[in-house]
């Protein structure tokens, strides 16, 4: 029960991140007339969709005390496979979706299996699979290739007012995973394993099976992100996932989820994704080069983790 309370309670970190978002908005308003336009708002949302999905997957894994660095290779591989199969008909698209989802789950099960049953540290397991998949993506094609049906590409660019379809999908996904974490046995087990794996095992939880399921879910979400990204690019880019391994971790941590597992949730991650996306947007309006944005990002990570260090295990 305490687990559920811990997950749903509004934490100070949420308020801090919301305050930071407000500050970023105030700076945005004063920095440029174009900031508050519907077009810019929609653009920023477009830019956060892929990262939001991957960060959601990372949140689940980190909550369980693990880590998934396989996204860099997995996203590239899945994008290439998706574009290779999807072609230009609805039938091929369905086949490609089924294939990519199955592969994503399989990748996750391999990650989870090696981590849970062989006992290899998830950092090493997922680093290994990421390297293999990055190689596999480039073995399939060195240049962006393949295609997706035009109607699917249009769909990923579609908007409902100022809200892209992708964003609506992301919100639904966050609500769904949030519900899963707070209200289902599976969710409670994730928190329990992240909190104290040994205790979870002693109290009879199927720790190993749960871990495999967690990484499989992570792989599934990765597949969803890959389909969206391929739709946006229009082709399968064998380097699509580069950087997503470490980028997916920043919002999770800034959102207050502890790397050690057991504490945090999807709300923090969602707020942090919003903060980071608008921060980058505003810094662009202020003509601050991405070099300084890197410095800002690093300092935000240090500030966030230093703030929570000492409040529980970190």
């Amino acid at each position: 029960m305490s687990t559920i309370a811990r997950a749903t309670r509004a934490q100070p970190v949420h308020l801090v991140v919301i305050a930071l978002i407000a500050i970023v908005f105030v700076i945005g308003f004063s920095a440029s007339d174009r900031f508050a336009t519907p077009l810019n708002m929609a653009n920023v949302q477009d830019q956060m969709v892929a990262l939001a999905i991957v960060a959601l997957a990372q949140t689940i894994v980190i909550l369980s005390g693990g880590i998934d660095l396989s996204y860099a290779g997995a996203l590239s591989f899945l994008c290439v496979v998706f574009a290779a199969i999807a072609g230009d008909s609805a039938g091929a698209l369905l086949l490609a979706m089924a294939a990519v989802v199955a592969l994503g789950i399989l990748i996750g099960m391999i990650n989870g299996g090696i981590t849970a049953y062989v006992g290899v540290h998830p950092l090493i397991t997922t680093l290994g699979t990421s390297t293999i998949l990055a190689g596999a993506a480039l073995l399939i094609t060195r240049q962006p290739s393949g295609s997706v049906p035009l109607f699917f590409e249009d769909f990923t660019y579609g908007r409902l007012g100022v809200m892209p379809f992708g964003m609506i999908f992301v919100i639904a996904l966050y609500l769904l995973i949030g519900f899963m974490l707070w209200r289902t046995t599976f969710g409670t087990r994730i928190y329990a394993i992240g909190d104290n794996e040994a205790a979870a095992a002693v109290s009879g939880l199927p720790v190993r099976q749960t871990k495999v399921a967690i990484y499989a879910l992570s792989g599934l979400l990765c597949a969803v992100a890959a389909m969206y990204m391929t739709g946006r690019f229009g082709v399968g880019d064998p380097r699509a996932g580069v950087g997503f391994d470490l980028r997916s971790i920043t919002p999770v941590i800034v959102g207050g989820t502890l790397l050690a597992g057991g504490k945090g949730g999807v709300l923090g991650t969602a707020l942090a994704v919003i903060l980071l996306a608008f921060l980058a947007n505003v810094l662009n309006f202020m003509n601050i080069s991405s070099y300084y944005q890197w410095i800002a990002e690093g300092l935000i990570i240090i500030a966030a983790v230093s703030f929570f260090a000492g409040k529980g295990k970190s």
Partner: peptide, 30 residues
Amino acid sequence: LVAYRKVTPFLATLATMIVLQGIRFAYTKG
């Protein structure tokens, strides 16, 4: 950061990595 601020090594060094990257590029203008 790791010993005195109790930041996880993964995060502390990830942050340093990104900050250094920014400093380096800002200094050389790419």
